[in-house]
Amino acid sequence: MTQNEFLNIVMPFKDKVFRLAKRLLVSTEEAEDATQEVLLKLWRNKGKIGEYKNVEAFSMTMTKNFCFDKLKSKQAQNLKIVHSNYEEKNTPLQKQVELNDSVSWVERIIQELPEQQRMIIQLRDIEEYDFDEISKMLSMNNTAVRVALSRARKTIRERLTNTHNYGIK
């Protein structure tokens, strides 16, 4: 397999991999590294790509596992502490701007969801995969995906109505 053939396979979904990684890891840089790592892993095992039934779904699962590993590792935990300190102390202005911007509120609300619901929202509402694909990617039951999705959507709606109605928080 040449480099071009590989890129032709990978190009259509590399952005999706990146967005999923960013949804889980939050930081853009971390997500870029994760995407690069996942794609390079695919490239190293390019001989086996023909054997995969669905390269895209396979890469999404890889991304999910890779990001979970990252989050579990100590390195990521250290980074988290630094990151939150930075956000809280040094950027009050940016925070205020964000408060006014209701679209970025959605991002914050999604960020507060449990990891699984975050992934499902990402895969369904942003990437628009169908339920079968999502259940394969996350190795979950089809109905479990629906339930988690419904819960996530309701939480987002509730919090949005709250902020919308009172303009607080």
């Binding site: 480099q3 991999v17 995407t35 690069q36 390079l40 490239w43 679209v103 949005l160």
Partner: peptide, 28 residues
């Protein structure tokens, strides 16, 4: 239904985000 608006605009807006870092396939 106004409060649903940011949600859907966010979903659509987020679809545009792209991975811009290049892949060092050769150097590997």
């Amino acid at each position: 239904l106004e409060h649903y608006k940011p949600m859907f605009t966010y979903f659509l807006g987020n679809q545009q985000e792209q991975f811009t870092k290049d892949l060092p396939l050769k150097t590997k």
